[in-house]
Design a protein around this nucleic acid. Structure first.
Lengths: 224, 224
DNA sequence: TCAAAACTGTCAATAACCTTACAGCTAATG
DNA sequence: CATTAGCTGTAAGGTTATTGACAGTTTTGA
């Protein structure tokens, strides 16, 4: 995780660099806004810690500038000013959080963690097989990025195949997974759904292999 | 935007409810942790404001419990305790931000805005799908820059589609998000609203796609 | 070669959805 | 206050997609 620390005070910069490095972050210090902008163009940072009191440029101004350039990084601002308006201004200008100096390093660390978790702790639950992608949280199955339009039943069947990827799924399993209240599906009904799904995914690099008497397996046609 | 306020102090709860309602949020108050849990199961909130000093349950405990249930809502905690450890503990237990009492309402509002922006809109306070724009801070929906005149219900439906952009939203979800006072909406009511919204956005490049048996998805008609 | 298992297209019943009309209600307006 | 306009949810009829049974065909493995 790369952090850009925009801070002109050597002592504070050193302290922060030390603490954050110890927690496993990679910290780069920019002493001026101009240099920070330069670094941002070149390198891939994940988070910015910005002290509003800079020598060459007003911090809020820099903040505005960065956001107007569609920079989407999370930004934590540090300020010595205890003025409420400044703090609100900072947040409404696009900062994600701020801390007022003097602050406890441990608290800054905790807040940075929260910020990172919220921004990158992507809970995207995507299962991939070949060019198929199952996104369980958004209830979608994509093939080569295109949204497959499946019926509820078809979705449920393909979902099971993807979730249990690598396993041979018996018709009983499908019936269990599909039937809401006891009334079991016939084996043939499952066959029908497998048939329909095969039609849907025919253009792509995955197929459903039959294991006679056992069930079905989703597999990548190319390399296993 | 539905906010669950977990707060036992009537005065504070009333004040917050007023302020946030004025800013266009729909606020529900839970006076106990137990009741909050109950509400969270039944209804669709977008944000939680949690006071750590609750009568029936330790706030941190509730926080831990919610997170362990994989609840991914953004959470802002309020605390009277000035103890650094408590604050850090709160954040590391999964809160996204905190404020120490007493605080300025304006600042809380600004922070809530920042939280919403970060969680639902990337770095911007505007969520864009095609030529539709949801402005989460002013609670407006624009289409090609023009303000859509939607009724409260229509707005709520489209808001959910935009906030959960990319996800297939079931009718249950809509019902949860819309009915914050017990009485559930029928499926048909949702269908009627979808119909009305389709009329509104017909001239533009976004549409609502039906997934039979699953729900609805907002999508850009042109490129995905 | 035979029987079992799986495949496939058709079809009627059904469930899901769309659409319009309307009645009760609320909020604004004169 | 009375009137109007708009919002909200229900009802009802029409439309379409889904579902699973069926029956004929093909494949498989012993």
């Amino acid at each position: 995780m790369n952090i850009l620390l925009i801070e002109d005070d050597d002592v504070l910069a050193d302290g922060l660099t030390h603490t954050l490095s110890d927690s496993g972050y990679c910290v780069t210090v920019a002493k001026t806004g101009t240099y920070a902008e330069h670094l941002l163009k070149a390198e891939g940072f994940d988070l910015i810690v910005l002290d509003l009191g800079l020598p060459d440029m007003d911090g809020l101004q820099l903040l505005r500038k960065l956001r107007s350039q569609k920079l989407s990084l999370p930004i934590m601002i540090l300020t010595a000013r205890d003025d409420l308006n400044d703090r609100i201004e900072g947040i409404s200008q696009g900062a994600d959080d701020y801390m007022t100096k003097p602050f406890e390093l441990r608290e800054l660390e905790a807040r940075l963690h929260a910020l990172i978790r919220r921004c990158y702790g992507g809970f995207s639950h995507i299962i991939e097989v070949g060019s198929l992608q199952l996104d369980t949280s958004s209830q979608k199955i994509l093939a080569k990025g295109e949204l497959l339009s499946l019926s509820a039943r078809e979705y449920a069947v393909l979902e099971l195949l993807l979730m249990q990827n690598g396993k041979v799924i018996s018709k009983d399993k499908f019936a269990q997974h599909l039937s809401l209240q006891g009334d079991a599906l016939t084996d043939n009904a499952i066959e029908v759904y497998i048939h329909r799904i095969r039609k849907h995914i025919a253009p792509y690099d995955v197929g459903i292999r039959t294991f006679r008497g056992l069930g079905y397996l989703l597999e990548n046609k190319l390399n296993d």
